[in-house]
Design a protein around this nucleic acid. Structure first.
Lengths: 143, 143
DNA sequence: CGCGCCAACCGGCGTTATGCCGGTGTTTTT
DNA sequence: AAAAACACCGGCATAACGCCGGTTGGCGCG
């Protein structure tokens, strides 16, 4: 499903997703056409989902925070629609431990953050929310 | 520092970071050269940090986990080099609350996860670590 | 063993995109 | 008001791309 060459191509794209097929071909020691075809296949098969631009800290205006959420719903899935509906929710993971959901939010202001928190609190299935506002951003690799 | 056109260019790149300058130019109604120059400026000024490939869930083999870390170091920065040295560490945020650092890790195996945890435990400045293994991935917007 | 089949790779060709540069219009400075 | 600074445009030479025919190397089957 993905041999050594595909891995090399992906690794090259992880270094810089905006580089020419020719440049990648040179790195992995294949012809440009071979890399081109492999790329197309990787994209169509869904192994490669897309390409993202990584922004500098300047563009990161606003506030980020973690919510750890505990809920009493039988299935986690009950509260997911609520979270999906909030555009500021960047990531949501079901996790082990006392907490059930770890949610990462990026909002424009602290006010908006509170608003979101209250919206979540209103949901009957949600028992407890802890907010951890992000003070510093040390490491941030995409994906 | 970044006018309406820059925003449009960035938005276009967020849709697909691997598209030609010409294609972007067409979307934002500028000449290719103008977009090209703006892009170079955005990259050099650090507003654009780089470009990443987004992989499908198939390639997401392995285990993900959150570490919440409490440390006694005067400055957070003391433990950051240790984290930066570990390639599996995807994100690290300094946060408010009882916890000091929220670290997101993506490793190949649970064994490797434990290995990383022990490595962190060995650091004198780190007081306490809680591990939350990710069971489900509900929402995951890049950046 | 040899034959044919299939998948992957290569390289050339025409088209498209890129980088560079001079020219132009607009705003800011002196 | 002239000059300088800035951003944009468009043309040209070069590089990259997509496409296609030809070649290679493995693999099964008679």
């Amino acid at each position: 499903m993905s041999d050594k060459f595909d891995q090399l191509i992906i690794k090259a794209l992880q270094e810089d997703a905006r580089q020419s097929v020719s440049a990648i071909a040179e790195q992995v020691h294949l012809s440009r056409s071979a890399v081109s075809e492999r790329l197309k296949r990787l994209e169509q098969s869904g192994e490669i989902r897309g390409y993202q631009v990584l922004l500098g800290h300047k563009s990161m205006s606003g506030v980020a925070a973690y919510f750890d959420i505990q809920h009493n719903s039988a299935r986690c899935a009950d509260v997911i629609p609520l979270l999906t509906a909030i555009p500021e929710v960047r990531r949501c993971h079901g996790i082990s431990g006392e907490i059930d959901l770890m949610v990462f939010v990026q909002a424009d202001s602290v006010t908006r953050l509170h608003q979101i928190r209250e919206e979540l609190d209103a949901h009957p299935a949600i028992v407890r929310i802890k907010t951890h506002i992000v003070l510093s951003d040390w490491i941030n690799k995409a994906d």
